[in-house]
Design a protein around this nucleic acid. Structure first.
Lengths: 156, 156
DNA sequence: ATACGTGCAAAGTATTTGCAAACGG
DNA sequence: CCGTTTGCAAATACTTTGCACGTAT
């Protein structure tokens, strides 16, 4: 019994370390565990890239775990306060959210001006350039986001 | 008479070359010259950094050149289509706009998480890092934006 | 004269909030 | 039990659109 639980837990955290981490942080911050918030956190933990509130709402409904749209927004707000998610703005007036990755594992976004598709990319040299400039500004820079806009290969 | 006009025009374009350029582009694109759009363009040309639609509306009203908020939005939309302005998203759900500077003269933004202040910064090395990564992505990257978020010196 | 520009008000989206009921500890 | 969480609906904030009127060409 105990062994199985440990194995499950390990596999779980291997695949979605962020989910477990986020639930821990929420717990430590005194939040109770309700179904809606947990569903949102678990869905976010499975993503490679960002989702809008409406997409989260739709996917949970599709997965037969419907939650109120307000709970989605409330959860995202809470997670953002705890710095567990990062808000991405692709320039279309829709906020998107994705799990904040552990340090050094950032990625950024590429938005197709034509079809609106959002993709991720990452580049260590870009990260270094940002870290360097961030140090010289007199701000305590906590986050950064780079959005590149242009025509994707399909829309060229 | 004529001399004075020339001098005024020169000083004007020295201070706000973007304004004259933008008005030219609008004219070439077949837009007629109306008062509201011109007022918005001239205000934008005087800015160092980005303004929201509401700020533009308020400032024009304060300058006794009131325009409808719809005209502000329409003008910004037109200018964005012509790539004369760049839309900035500081992460607070409010779109801000600033004149698109000539190539090589980009700047980026620093947002205080606490007081919401938006400031500009620029760094040639960062630009180079972005240009390099943009070349390897299979997109025709046309624009980019970097937003750094953290606590400003006043809010530390 | 005619089509474009503008302002107002209404409509449309995305997001937030108030509140009563469900729920977890 | 008691306070948190949730879902619904109403409210809000930002932005867009419809339309009648004004204005530039």
């Amino acid at each position: 019994m105990r062994t199985i639980l440990v194995i499950v837990s390990r596999r779980y955290t291997d695949h979605v370390p962020w989910t477990a981490h986020a639930l821990d942080v929420l717990d430590d911050a005194g939040y109770r565990s309700g179904g809606a918030r947990r569903a949102v956190v678990e869905l976010l933990g499975r993503q490679n890239c960002c989702l809008s509130a409406q997409e989260i709402f739709d996917r949970l409904r599709g997965a037969r775990r419907p939650v109120g749209i307000a709970s989605v927004y409330r959860t995202l707000d809470t997670l953002a306060d705890l710095r567990l998610v990062k808000r991405i703005d692709a320039g279309d007036g829709i906020a998107r959210y994705e799990p904040s990755p552990p340090d050094g594992d950032h990625h950024h976004h590429l938005v197709c001006r034509d079809c609106g598709k959002v993709e991720a990319f990452s580049d260590p040299r870009l990260e270094r350039a940002i870290d360097r400039v961030a140090d010289g500004l007199g701000y305590a820079v906590e986050e950064h986001e780079v959005v590149l806009t242009g025509a994707c290969s399909d829309c060229l």
